[in-house]
């Protein structure tokens, strides 16, 4: 009887495979296969019309040694990442810390800050940005009210990239809501204990608050970095990569090589360089975080 019962339970456990089947198929066909295929393409000459022709590492060699545009895009993408990821997180953290107490109207405020994230990198908002930062646009008009000189935001190679970064940083609201939720979960007794030890506001922030929310910050940094390194829409809609390719992100170069020039093999090589960059950054972040990020449990299930 007992064995019969446990057998039927065993049988039931195997039904799990049935439920995860859609994902198993999806993972194999739409993720794993394209992932491997992409690496293969990167070693070939491939336009969608004809079958791929093996060229070995030639695409990578050309990219790294013979394509000025690539190094420009590579630099532009890193600058974009280094502006937007810390910019967003720091902004989100400051506002979340200031909002983390019992105050009236907190829900309304949280809503206001969240709204920009709602629209994300939609074309509608990119167009709005382009209009606002035009030479005779609202931003320059506001500057003149304060007696400040006009800036050629999108027409100047020095300011075009920061202007696009601003659009990304403007959407810090979702990170903020996330951090705010994490802050609410910091156990109160930790603060009480710190106070007993004579800790001031700064000490409490450094020794209690930040370590407690560090996993969320860490998760945010990683996901934002992955997104930033392959960013596309903002630059494509607002500046089309210009002026003088100063906003020509790797994501844009990848798109144009693949879908304007049909150099799919070459574009795949670019995508693997993006992937490599993501892996390096993620590994470095994990390394760095092992001493800094604090986990209260090992997370077993």
């Amino acid at each position: 009887m007992a064995t019969a019962k446990s057998k039927s339970i065993r049988k039931r456990e195997y039904q799990g495979y049935l439920y995860i089947l859609p994902w198993l198929l999806g993972f194999t066909i739409l993720q794993l296969y394209p992932f491997i295929q992409s690496f293969y393409y990167s070693l070939t000459n491939y336009s969608i019309m004809a079958s791929p022709k093996w060229v070995g590492i030639q695409n990578y060699v050309t990219l790294l040694t013979n394509d000025r545009e690539f190094w420009n895009s590579f630099t532009v993408t890193w600058i974009y990442t280094l502006y937007t990821v810390p910019g967003k997180i720091i902004m989100a953290l400051i506002i979340a810390l200031l909002m983390n107490r019992n105050m009236k109207g907190i829900n309304t405020l949280r809503t206001i800050y969240y709204i920009p994230s709602l629209f994300g990198g939609s074309v509608a908002i990119c167009i709005l940005w382009r209009l606002m930062f035009m030479d005779d646009g609202i931003i320059n008009a506001l500057l003149s009210v304060f007696g400040l000189p006009h800036v050629q935001w999108l027409g100047n190679t020095k300011t075009a990239l920061p202007t696009i970064c601003m659009l990304e940083i403007w959407q810090f609201g979702s990170s903020m809501v996330m951090l705010l939720a994490a802050l609410k979960n910091v156990p109160q007794d930790l603060y009480e204990a710190a106070e007993l030890d004579g800790a001031g506001a700064v000490a409490k922030l450094v020794h209690v608050t930040l370590p407690q929310i560090s996993p969320i910050i860490f998760f945010n940094v990683i996901m934002q970095t992955i997104n930033a390194l392959q960013a596309f829409t903002n630059a494509f809609v607002i500046t089309k990569g210009g002026p003088l390719k100063s906003t020509y992100l790797l994501g844009m170069k990848l798109y144009q090589e693949a879908f304007s020039y049909y150099k799919m093999g070459y574009a795949s090589a670019i995508s693997w360089i993006i992937f490599g960059a993501i892996m390096v950054v993620t590994l470095l972040l994990f390394r760095f975080s092992s001493g800094v990020v604090y986990y209260s449990d090992a997370g077993e299930f």
């Binding site: 993720q31 394209p34 992932f35 295929q37 992409s38 393409y41 392959q230 993501i278």
Partner: peptide
């Protein structure tokens, strides 16, 4: 897994 990598295949 970045979308950029699997986009072309």
């Amino acid at each position: 897994l970045p979308n950029a990598v699997i986009m072309i295949p």
